[in-house]
Nucleic acid binder design. Structure first.
Lengths: 159, 159
DNA sequence: AACTCCTTGTTCAAATTTGAACTCAACTGT
DNA sequence: ACAGTTGAGTTCAAATTTGAACAAGGAGTT
């Protein structure tokens, strides 16, 4: 230690490309969804995640982790979406302190209407811009990045 | 048109990995910077960008574009950082309506103290987790993604 | 049961972000 | 000089996010 191992040009390029693409893509998708359907990207992800879950329902904490959001933030968003009729809250059967967020029929309908435009945007902005090799590198490399960060929050074992 | 060209598994993997890594990395860095130095990632980026600019100063709008932020958001952040003594506002010489944000000596000092830890974190959570090939794919592919989005906002030529 | 510790989800205030409206300055054409 | 238009920054209210504090349940121990 002592001296910092600065990024060289090649590393810097990767870093800058990653961080700016991340910001821009997120912003772009948010706008597309908002214009087309009045949904935020976060809300879309919530609907998507619930829709895939069995019974279309999921515990708040698990949902928060899945979409990478704070618990209080999720409470807020589910509140909004409940007002909009996209989801409902229901008590968890086997635990009195648990709450299930469940997608409604209207939620599913909204998702179905939103999905085509969203997927098209994802292709146009990201997926179709990458070569198959780059896609693989992104899937593998960034997948590993994600897993490592997720593990480290979990394990807690900080050596 | 008509039928949606859904993402296949390979594409889905790339998409999911990208979006979750993006969220997690940003979150992680924000936390590291905040704990170590009381800076948000955005503030770090502002200091960084100003520090590199000649004379350590830059027009508000250009700065906003560079760090990918709304103009009003930047006005707010520069306000905060001005209170904290990290930057100053100065009138643009050749344009009375222009404002220059300039990094102060204290700002530079803060940046210098923050940089080593930040770079280390960037390595640990992203750069060193990728193979050189993956880094190249990320730099090239996501660089292209970034450029395309940037162009399209610019050109405005929507056909 | 009484006690302690951990987990769930919510609440609350403060910080931040967003987008539209607004103020001036700069540029155009007359 | 004078409208008409555009560009730069700011302001403002509303929406969202954050993190700490909180109420209530579970689970384990004595």
């Amino acid at each position: 230690m002592g001296h910092t191992n600065w990024l060289n040009e090649e590393e810097m390029n990767a870093w800058i490309a990653f961080i700016s693409a991340a910001t821009l893509v997120d912003r772009e998708l948010d706008q597309q969804l908002k214009e087309d359907m009045g949904l935020s990207h976060l809300q879309y992800q919530i609907l998507m995640t619930l829709n895939r879950a069995e019974a279309g329902a999921m515990r708040m904490t698990e949902l928060a982790e899945r979409i990478i959001n704070s618990k209080s933030g999720l409470t807020y968003q589910i509140g909004q979406m409940e007002k909009a009729g996209l989801v409902t809250r229901r008590q968890c059967e086997w635990s009195k302190s648990g709450v299930l967020a469940e997608i409604t029929a209207e939620g599913r309908a909204t998702l179905e209407r939103a999905a085509p435009g969203h997927v098209e945007a994802v292709r146009e902005i990201l997926i179709d811009v990458l070569t198959p090799e780059e896609r693989k590198a992104v899937a593998d490399g960034l997948g590993r990045v994600r897993d490592r960060i997720a593990e480290r929050k979990q394990g807690g074992t900080c050596w």
